[in-house]
Amino acid sequence: MASDKPVVIYPPDEDGGRRVRVDGKILGRAYSVQDVARFMQEAGLQEFDEMDVVRSALIEWRGGPDAWHT
């Protein structure tokens, strides 16, 4: 299933990491909202913080923003 949003956060894997895809490219795995914010900053959105990540219309959350394994 293709996304119309430039950023996709996939559901947690067996290790609790979530793949982060920006513009069709997997950037890595995030283990927290802070990790997602860091990926967004590295992708050029330097002002992005944790609250921006949770509220952003740019991000498609598969599994929701609260679905983190601990």
Rank of each mutant, 00 (worst) to 15 (best):
T70K: 11
A2K: 12
D52Q: 07
D23P: 00
A2N: 08
D4P: 07
G64M: 07
Q41T: 04
W61A: 00
A2I: 14
V8M: 02
S56L: 02
F48T: 14
D23Y: 03
G16Y: 13
S32G: 11
F39V: 01
G17P: 02
A57M: 13
E14L: 15
V20S: 03
M40A: 09
A43L: 08
A57T: 03
D35L: 02
K25A: 13
E50A: 15
V7L: 06
G64D: 12
P11D: 08
I26Q: 12
A67F: 07
R19T: 05
V20L: 14
P12T: 10
M40E: 07
G24Y: 12
L45D: 11
M40I: 00
E14D: 14
Q46H: 13
L27M: 08
R29V: 07
R19W: 08
R62F: 00
I9K: 00
V54G: 01
Q46W: 07
V20H: 04
Y10F: 11
L58I: 07
G44K: 05
R19G: 02
V54F: 01
V53M: 07
Q34C: 15
Q46P: 09
V36M: 00
T70G: 14
W68C: 02
E47T: 14
V53D: 04
V33Q: 07
S56W: 00
R55H: 10
D4F: 01
G63A: 08
V54D: 03
V8F: 04
S32W: 01
G44Y: 00
M1K: 08
V7I: 14
A57D: 14
F39H: 08
T70F: 11
A57I: 13
V22N: 01
D35Q: 03
E50V: 15
H69P: 00
D35I: 05
A67W: 12
K5R: 08
R62A: 02
Y10E: 13
Y10P: 00
G44M: 06
R29Q: 14
G44I: 03
I59A: 02
A37L: 09
D52E: 09
Y31E: 06
V8A: 01
D4N: 15
Q41H: 10
Y31T: 09
G16Q: 03
W61Y: 07
